[in-house]
Amino acid sequence: CSEYQQTLKATDIGPKFKLGEQLYNEGEFSKANRLFSQIVPSYRGKPQAEKLMFMYAQTQYGMRDYFASSYQFERFADSYPKSEKLEEASFLSAKSYYMRSPVFSKDQTETKVAIEKLQLFINLFPKSEYLAEASSFIQELDGKLERKAFEIAKQYNTISDYKASIKSFDNFLFQFPGSSLREDAMYYRFDSSFNLAIRSIERKKEERLESADRYYKDLMTGFSETQYLDRAGKMHEEIVEELKNYSTKS
């Protein structure tokens, strides 16, 4: 029987704390976590609890159990508002939320919570050493939300629902004015409006060609040297050509 197993089975809490701390320092988080979880209730209210609770949260963080660690760090920050570890715990709590955020193409509820928590941290500790890291996380998470909205709008383009695509890109451009995907969004919005106009029923064609023409001009105003210059130019020529039919008639 190893020392670890013996301590795990023993009833004394003192040795568990000691061995747990040792394992924690060695980076054996999952072993340390098992010991800590046994003694956390007994230490509640005692002076050592502050240190224990912090280490306990750290082990969960180390085990990548970010659901537990976000909660434990948050609880630590609530319970020990005067602790010297307060800033670190607050940051790690927010970072745990950040780690929980899934890939952009899945539900982003966690992402939104993480942004909120990180922003709260920045507001509370504006001079923190973790500030740069926290801001970069927020940026990354914002990027996810942008990417999500962009990809959904682009999918409508892919499945040929051009009306839904135009509306979604409109919403995207309104919602994320500083997005790095702005150029792509404007191009695909133009692409959708082009396809809608070219395949339009006669009754609505002129109106749709004109709106496609407007979207082209929006793209060129925003990004005159866009990477889509060639493709967009060709499509625009076609629109101009088609529009001639209407100007000669009137």
């Binding site: 899945k106 509820t109 959904i152 999918q155 409508y156 009306k163 839904a164 135009i166 509306k167 919403n171």
Partner: peptide
């Protein structure tokens, strides 16, 4: 919301209520 496993594109293509 709530699609913790399924990717957006699998769901959005099935929607019959679309923007606009």
């Amino acid at each position: 919301v709530g699609n913790e496993k399924t990717n957006d594109h699998v769901i959005y293509r099935e929607l019959r209520t679309r923007p606009g």
